[in-house]
Amino acid sequence: MSLEALWSNKLRSALTMLGVIIGIGSVISITSIGQGIQKSTEESIRSLGTDVLQVIAGQAESEGISQGSVTTLTWEDAQAIAQQAPSAMVVSAYLQRNAQVVYGENNTSTTVYGTDLAHPDARNTYPAQGRFFTEEELENSASVAVIAPTVQANLFSPDVDPIGKKIRIQGEIYDVIGIMEAKGSQGPQDRDDAAYIPLTTMSARMIGNNSLMGVSVNGIYVKGGDESQLEAVKFQLENILRLRHDIAQPEDDDFRIINQADILETLNTVLGLLTTLIVAIAGISLVVGGIGIANIMLVSVVERTREIGIRKALGATERTILSQFLTESIVISLAGGSIGITLGVVITFVSATAFKFPFIVSSSAVFAGFGLSTAVGLVAGVIPARNASRLDPIVALRSE
């Protein structure tokens, strides 16, 4: 009888379910999309190594006055770390600038890195085609370049092999000797939108030696054996650099050390909090859906007062009437919840396919969806069902 009553008012039943569909669909899709993005970001960071410390250059100061763009972090610092820090497995210095790269009539703005030979090991990024530059090319400031896939796609058509071609970086001609493997995006940053040239070449031709103590660099990557050794590596780095830069406590360091593992942990925490917040906001629509169900059920009780009176006159108990209307409420809510879960999964799949992150359906969100839809049906249907079950049959039969 409950199903027949709902089917006879299909449009009203569908509109009643809409609030639950939107609420459950939002919770499922947002939770699953959040987990997919979190997983994608985590994989991207881990692919570059979470056992890596990044030393960032600060500014030189003289009697508390900043000396402009002159930095005190140098390639010689990196070489000293490689020799003196026992826990440092790989050490790589780098320079970084945005520059225009041109091939024929095509050009693109990208990030150009001046690196040493250890960069592929330090960043866990190796050439997929061709090769990286050699020690001889580094020492001689050779005009060679290794480009990443996004730069390749922007400069060369698919049928052209970039290896051996000549490109211009800030007007200087470079021979392309390799194509780096794809690493994807890390948050908003495209790791594949980059070009790599020897550190000595970049220092001499693009920037100039602007350090007080040697070849200026923007930063140094230091790779430990694993994440558990990073604190030991950090301690050694701080001591070596403070000695080389004549920094005594309580003076401030002219460098910063960033832990990739800490970045990953912080990012996961922030994404988790954002997902929870948005899910909580989406859950408000469930409240609206519950109110809609309660409202429609109250209207239904009023419309069917004579039916209730006839049933009670023929012997229907209060419990039977209560069960009928409560069942209608729960069926509406569960049907809406099922459609909402399906909708949430579809939205998640489409989003994962379009934006290329892992397709993950949160099982906890699915179970929570069923539980919430059942709870909404129970809560929203209790008062209307109780009102129906307590109607006086004589009064009910007299109603118009």
Rank of each mutant, 00 (worst) to 15 (best):
Gly208Leu: 06
Thr276Met: 11
Tyr196Lys: 04
Val302Tyr: 02
Gly208Trp: 00
His245Trp: 12
Pro250Gln: 03
Ile284Tyr: 03
Gly290Gln: 04
Val331Thr: 02
Leu237Glu: 00
Arg242Cys: 05
Ile197Gly: 06
Glu231Gln: 10
Asn218Ala: 06
Asp253Leu: 08
Asn218Ile: 04
Ala195Pro: 02
Pro198Ile: 13
Asn239Thr: 12
Arg311Asn: 10
Tyr196Trp: 04
Leu298Cys: 07
Ala280Arg: 13
Leu286Thr: 00
Glu318Pro: 10
Val222Met: 09
Asn210Ile: 15
Asn295Cys: 14
Phe235Gly: 11
Gly219Tyr: 00
Ile281Leu: 11
Glu238Cys: 11
Ala294Asn: 06
Thr305Asn: 05
Arg244Ile: 00
Ala248Arg: 14
Arg306Cys: 14
Val287His: 10
Ile263Cys: 00
Leu212His: 15
Gln249Glu: 13
Arg242Thr: 04
Arg205Ser: 08
Ile281Pro: 04
Gln260Thr: 01
Thr275Val: 13
Ile291Val: 05
Val301Gln: 08
Glu231Ile: 09
Val288Met: 11
Ser228Lys: 13
Glu318Asp: 11
Leu267Tyr: 00
Asp252Asn: 09
Gln229Ser: 07
Leu243Arg: 15
Phe235Val: 10
Asn268Ser: 07
Glu227Asn: 14
Val233Trp: 05
Glu307Asp: 04
Ala294Thr: 13
Ile257Asn: 04
Ala261Gly: 15
Arg205Lys: 08
Thr305His: 05
Leu274Thr: 11
Ala316Gln: 10
Ile258Cys: 08
Asp193Arg: 00
Met206Gln: 06
Lys223Asn: 11
Thr200Ile: 05
Arg242Ala: 01
Asp253Ser: 10
Thr305Ser: 01
Thr269Gln: 02
Met206Asp: 11
His245Cys: 10
Thr317Ala: 03
Ile257Val: 10
Leu322Ile: 12
Glu328Tyr: 03
Glu303Arg: 06
Leu322Trp: 01
Arg319Ile: 08
Leu271Phe: 12
Pro198Cys: 07
Thr276Arg: 09
Ile310Gly: 07
Arg244His: 08
Arg205Leu: 08
Tyr196Arg: 01
Ile310Asn: 05
Glu307Arg: 14
Gly225Pro: 04
Ile281His: 09
Thr327Glu: 04
Leu274Phe: 14
Pro250Gly: 01
Met202Thr: 14
Glu303Tyr: 12
Val287Tyr: 11
Gln236Ser: 15
Lys312Trp: 00
Asp226Val: 03
Ile296Ser: 08
Glu318Lys: 07
Val287Asn: 05
Ile220Met: 12
Ser300His: 03
Gly272Trp: 15
Thr320Glu: 15
Ile281Arg: 04
Leu298Gly: 06
Ile278Glu: 07
Gly309Met: 00
Thr320Tyr: 09
Ile240Phe: 12
